[in-house]
């Protein structure tokens, strides 16, 4: 049934992604592909993997953006241009247009936790859900001919055969800098909700009116590079000198 669930619980499982700490290492991309190619549904295929025109299906991708403030082209003038690494996977939207456009009922949103999934046995591979998604969260697997998307590792988070610390999405478990957090965004007292409230977490493209569950935390303000540059070059700083060298430094200064 591809109408959105009428009786949703308050539970909204999702991710919080911290743009301040992501270093763009792509470890989550690889661990996502590794887990999900052998997990839920069809494998995530690659086309021409060792050839000149490599491409493949990924559920999580890292983009890197350059952000330049007005007049910020010159270092120290109006804040510095900076690079922000930007992980992007399905946002498990509350008003998911990818679900309602599906003609077969393959695409659905779970009433109990809000996860958006594809029943691959029903998917005809028409691609309309990928057209309806503004975030590029859905990619057609060219080998299987069905739509693939982030499952929020539904086969990990409820998996009682895994240790408690492993019952989080693969990308969250693998992130070396803790830029990705998993939790219930419908519960205002959950760690992720508190983090979003404290850091001013935001939605991507709110104007698309999809009400995403996943939130992004903004990069923290930075001190200007020119502010942190010492007036005396570091190599000429003699503050810590003692004994013979301190005497030499003073004597030479006097000459």
């Amino acid at each position: 049934m591809t109408s959105l669930p009428q009786n949703r619980t308050a539970k909204r499982l999702g991710l919080v992604i911290d743009l301040d700490v992501c270093v763009g290492c792509h470890a989550c991309v690889i661990s996502c592909k590794e887990w999900n190619t052998g997990g839920y549904g069809n494998a995530l295929s690659d086309q021409d993997p060792y050839g000149g025109d490599v491409s493949g299906t990924f559920l999580n991708r890292i983009h890197s953006f350059e952000v330049v403030p007005e007049g910020g082209q010159i270092i120290g003038e109006a804040g510095d241009a900076r690079v922000v690494h930007f992980p992007k996977s399905c946002l498990h939207c509350e008003d998911a247009p990818c679900v309602t456009v599906c003609p077969t009922g393959a695409s659905y949103k779970r009433a109990e936790d809000g996860i958006v999934l594809v029943d691959e046995d029903k998917c005809i591979g028409c691609g309309l859900c990928a057209w309806a998604c503004a975030y590029g969260a859905r990619e057609m697997d060219l080998a299987a001919g069905v739509m693939k998307k982030c499952t929020l590792c539904v086969d990990r988070i409820y998996n009682e055969t895994l240790k408690q610390e492993d019952r989080v999405p693969s990308c969250v478990r693998t992130c070396p800098v803790n830029a990705r957090h998993f939790g219930d965004l419908g519960d205002p007292n959950s760690d992720v909700s508190i983090m979003v409230a404290e850091r001013g977490g935001f939605d991507l493209m709110p104007e698309q009116e999809t009400r995403p569950t996943n939130k992004y935390l903004p990069p923290r303000p930075r001190t200007c590079l020119s502010d942190s540059a010492p007036i005396i070059p570091l190599a000429e700083n003699t503050e810590g000198a003692r004994g013979f060298f301190a005497w030499l430094d003073k004597t030479l200064d006097r000459i």
Binding site: L19, G24, H63, S64, F65, E66, V67, V68, P69, E70, G72, G79, A81, R82, V83, V84, F86, A134, F202, D203, L204, M205, P206, E207, Y216, P218, P219
Partner: peptide
């Protein structure tokens, strides 16, 4: 709006 980074400045794809 796609990245939410407009509050810092103009956003351009780097990689």
């Amino acid at each position: 709006s796609a990245t939410g980074l407009g509050f810092i400045g103009k956003v351009r794809l780097f990689e």
